[in-house]
Design a protein around this nucleic acid. Sequence first.
DNA 1: TAGGTTGACATGTATATACAAGTTATACAA
DNA 2: TTGTATAACTTGTATATACATGTCAACCTA
Lengths: 240, 240
Amino acid sequence: MSRALYLRIADTLRQRILSGGHPVGDLLPSENELSEAYRTSRVTVRKAMNILEGEGYIKARQGKGYIVQPPRHAVFTLIFGEEDTRHEFRCLEVGIIEPPEHAARSLALKEGDLVVVIRRILDREGIPLAYDEKFLPYERGRPTVELELGYSEFADYFSDRFSALALRTEMRVRATLPPAHVRLALGSGEERLLAVDRLVVSPAGERIGFSREYLTPEFGPLRAFSGRSGSAENAPNPIP
Amino acid sequence: MSRALYLRIADTLRQRILSGGHPVGDLLPSENELSEAYRTSRVTVRKAMNILEGEGYIKARQGKGYIVQPPRHAVFTLIFGEEDTRHEFRCLEVGIIEPPEHAARSLALKEGDLVVVIRRILDREGIPLAYDEKFLPYERGRPTVELELGYSEFADYFSDRFSALALRTEMRVRATLPPAHVRLALGSGEERLLAVDRLVVSPAGERIGFSREYLTPEFGPLRAFSGRSGSAENAPNPIP
DNA sequence: TAGGTTGACATGTATATACAAGTTATACAA
DNA sequence: TTGTATAACTTGTATATACATGTCAACCTA
């Protein structure tokens, strides 16, 4: 038997969108029209639509229809460093401080607001891999269990307060010269560092935490894979 | 009305997986068992399963069941630089050469194989933003229209030979000191560069192209967003 | 004219059903 | 013992149907 009908419907609609037959913002034919056109049921058409929606080509609006979406950016699966578990964290500093300017701005703090700070070194067998600063808005009275934060992401830590999947993370990566306190902590005269800023935002828009990491070359490159839905198995590693 | 039933089923199963109730490799209860347990139809249970499968928690195996998957890496939407279209490419070199060692290795070329090379500078209003090298395996007799390659990705360019969606891209990002010829081309004494290697692979595993880009600080940071399925609208930009 | 109602039509959720096709353990035959 | 049917599971595909809910334009009323 050939490909399933709902896949073939998705294929032809996808092709029609890609070839410009349905420009961005266009309303696709309704489910009823399509099910008549393909002489099939509405349920089967919906399966095709769900696929295209998952791929980002269209967006469903109840009561309105399916709207063709602008081409979205490539989706990558990001992997930090090697899957090597021999690394350890050395905590340098934990406390409640006035936030440095960049953290205050990212967390949208008001003048005088305090933050919980955690500064750590990641190393593997004595070799420093990364310097890591985390900033969490300090709420008077909230238990500061979070001072014990391990390497887990904010998202992991806050998965009880929020559904981990609901949290949104924004990252910025740049090459940088380390500030003095980082260079000192990392020991060597490292100059080729990757700086990774992360901001974790709750579904309600509350800024939950901000972290800045400085990655040394020993940490390894930041790797990303696109194509197919992010399962690790189809991501072998041809780039040497 | 409360949340839809299929969403609630997905929620409770997700929670059960996250809390270790169903370890990795475990087989979930079958659709029939679940539809009895929740006193609903198999179709509704399947909707829940499809969600969890899309989120990577489980994987369906026909004839077998739903298998709990290992936690997958976060999926990010990557954005390069600003959405500023005032930039231009200046082509430095186009030709057919013996590949440099890193390109030959990434493309898995044999001794003596040649590549088409394109070296370009990206700049905005006279300021260099990036240095870009692309390498394509040279096939004798293939028309070298590709010498005209614009800023389009390989994926765009080869979308006629392959479905653009089928192509897989692997990226590596690191901070680097530029090699001499790049420093020369970029003019200034730039030292804080992001190096981005990309390898594009066809569905059959054929290595289609390799590119190496050196991004200056003026190019802007590499940005990534996670959470929700990669639509651009829910990615405003709080990190300043 | 301004504002509210209604109805046609869109997608969202849910049920019941049927058959196709992959998997596996068990029973049985060579 | 080894191989092969078979039966009882599993998920995959597809249909027909019902009602809930969001959207919007046309119409009606004050």
